[in-house]
Design a protein around this nucleic acid. Structure first.
Length: 572
RNA sequence: CGGGGUGUGGCGCAGCCCGGUAGCGCGCCUGCUUUGGGAGCAGGAAGUCGCUGGUUCAAAUCCAGUCACCCCGACCA
């Protein structure tokens, strides 16, 4: 391809809206352009990289026996009513009406359509297992698209579904996908890690996320550098000592006028913050509930939600006053409020603590768990902090931001049962198909690869994902010998099967080299008058920055070596 | 949805307080010169200042509304 005829609109300056590194570079390198929030055009270079990533995914899915489908993105809404997910997705689903007034949606995922294809057609245990997948555009009306390609309203997902007879079969399919995902991300050259996750809207028993550590990521994850431990903040725990109270003493009220916050009270009473008990009142579907954490800890609403059974919200000032007889800031867990109490594990059996007196302007000291307060349950309720110790090995735990590259779920029979996707087992008994579902965001592979490999000059592609293998740059387009040599090398490389770009533009050397660095093709062949005089050309590895000077006929070999040098290694 | 911010040639911005001629850099087009890290000179094209309404003799500028986009939080590939 000749650069002058290939649409790569590079930008010298960064568009104002782009903050994330990958977003900035994808715009600047001419890979994507925004049409509206969370909706992008892939330009030729960007789409080429998308296809490279998709092909890796495809090959690994095929390797585990996956069969590629292409399911409709436009779905009659009735299918989604069968599982109740029309309602569940709510505003997140795009809906439209056809000329007859019939409502359709743009599919945000495809469990329902898979079931629709399976039911009536997979009838016997002999038909199972199956792994069905597709690489297709998904639509989700995200409340907040961001980070360029990281969170989009229209994006390309590889979604796979396993159909099995039973849980054992599902375990095997899940494991196959887990292995396939590891190979996929290795082949893409991404240093991923795996975290256990909650299943959210998908439902089901088990799920894991394949994460990539990056500042641009949206998820906060606790990760141990020493062992394999990694967990989403919503479930992460750490090894931390119980609160050290003081010796038991009687519960005494002290006046603390206008001292409400932990900070104020601990200063006023001259006691360490962790010796205070934070009393937090929430509301769940069955009424008020109370959470207790140490004064220097923060309540994890995620953890509290998990044990509260249903969605929670903080109680209002009126609700609190009504039941507790005091304002927020002066609440304590003791007394006759009859609210179920959940206390953090760090508070178990502690004595000599301070907390609100349930009387405005007063706190109490000498609070003792077991004597003054008997919680209904001690559970892990605190949000862990960066730098605490790993619950599994005790070494340093870091809280890092990460990009979710993929997510695998054990669904069970939620969808198959709802939609009548059943089979007959060996004994003639009808059973629902046991399903798993497995997603990968293709754009996120590219974004992650750019995030971790880019340098100050631009994108750096590895040979697995690069849209092109080489770029030939004649430095002076008015020098006939240079142009001729560049043409020859271009032809030679193209014939040898390298996807090659010839920068045939009549531009200054500096411009061409900056531009080549920006788009990040792994190898650059620079043909200049001064080197040509000596009968050599220069080859720069964009990946390592190394330059080699070789005879024109040796270019192929050097290019090949460089590409092999930036090819991710996959363990078998 | 809550909080913060921005809309002015393709891109990055100034002008707005204090109403009166739309301006700068990059890019683009033509010509000449130049050719190892985003060139120089000369000429040129391109903007209903997000949109709607109001105030005014006069609105990019003041007022009201509205839309879009970005960033930080709640949700997810």
């Amino acid at each position: 391809m000749q650069r002058s005829h290939y649409f790569i609109p590079t930008l010298k300056e960064t568009p104002a809206e782009a903050i994330a590194l990958s977003h900035r570079l994808m715009l600047r390198a001419g890979l994507i352009r925004m049409l509206s929030a969370g909706i992008y055009s892939y330009l030729p270079l960007g789409w080429s990289a998308m296809r490279k990533a998709s092909q890796i995914v495809r090959e690994e899915m095929d390797r585990i026996g996956g069969q590629e489908f292409q399911l409709p993105a436009l779905n009659a809404i009735e299918v989604w009513d069968e599982t109740g997910r029309n309602k569940e997705f709510g505003d997140e689903m795009f809906r439209l009406t056809d000329r007859k007034g019939h409502v359709h949606c743009l599919a945000p995922t495809h469990e329902e359509i898979i079931c629709a294809n399976a039911r009536g057609q997979l009838r016997s245990w002999r038909d199972l297992p199956q792994i069905w997948y597709q690489i297709q555009t998904k639509f989700r009306d995200e409340p907040r698209p961001r980070g360029g390609v990281l969170r989009m309203r229209q994006f390309i997902m590889k979604d796979a579904y396993s159909l099995d007879r039973d849980e054992e079969g599902l375990d095997r399919s899940y494991e196959l996908h887990s292995e396939a995902y590891k190979r996929i991300f290795q082949r893409c050259g991404l240093e991923f890690f795996i975290v256990g996750a909650s299943s959210g809207l998908m439902g089901g028993s088990k799920s894991q996320e394949f994460m990539f550590e990056s500042e641009a990521g949206e998820d906060e994850v606790a990760r141990c550098d020493n062992c394999e431990y990694a967990a989403n903040m919503e479930v992460a725990s750490s090894r931390i000592d119980r609160v050290e109270g003081s010796d038991p003493c009687t519960l005494t009220e002290v006046a603390t006028p206008d001292q409400r916050t932990v900070e104020e009270v601990s200063t006023f009473l001259n006691i360490p913050k962790d010796r205070l008990v934070k009393t937090l009142v929430y509301v769940n579907p069955s009424g008020l509930i109370m959470a207790l954490v140490s004064g220097d800890d923060e309540l994890s609403e995620d953890k509290f939600t998990a044990i509260a059974g249903g969605p929670i919200r903080p109680a209002t000032a009126e609700e609190v006053m009504d039941r507790m007889g005091a304002d927020i800031g002066f609440l304590g867990p003791h007394g006759d409020h009859k609210i179920p109490i959940f206390a953090d594990l760090r508070l178990k059996d502690c004595s000599g603590l301070a907390t609100g007196a349930n009387r405005n302007g007063y706190h109490v000291m000498g609070l003792e768990f077991g004597r003054d307060v008997v919680p209904d349950k001690y559970v892990d309720l605190r949000k862990i902090k960066d730098g605490e110790n790993c619950p599994s090995c005790g070494k340093l735990l870091r809280i890092v931001r990460s990009i979710e590259l993929g997510h695998i779920f054990k669904l069970g029979t939620k969808y198959s049962a709802a939609m009548g996707a059943v089979y007959l087992d060996e004994t003639g008994v009808e059973k629902p198909i046991v399903m798993g579902s497995y997603g990968i965001g293709i754009e996120r592979i590219l974004a992650a690869a750019i995030e971790c490999n880019a340098d100050e000059y631009g994108v750096r592609w590895n040979s697995a994902l690069t849209p092109l293998d080489a770029i030939v740059i004649p430095l002076n387009s008015s020098d006939e010998a240079v142009v001729k040599q560049a043409d020859e090398i271009y032809t030679q490389l193209t014939q040898a099967g390298f996807k090659t770009l010839l920068d045939d533009r009549d531009a200054r050397p500096g411009m061409k080299m900056k531009d080549a660095d920006l788009i990040g093709i792994p190898t650059q062949v620079i043909v200049s008058p001064r080197n040509l005089e000596k009968g050599i050309v220069e080859i720069k590895s964009r990946w390592s920055g190394e330059r080699s000077y070789v005879k024109p006929e040796e270019v192929k070999k050097v290019i090949n070596d460089i590409l092999n040098g930036c090819k991710p290694i996959v363990s078998q």
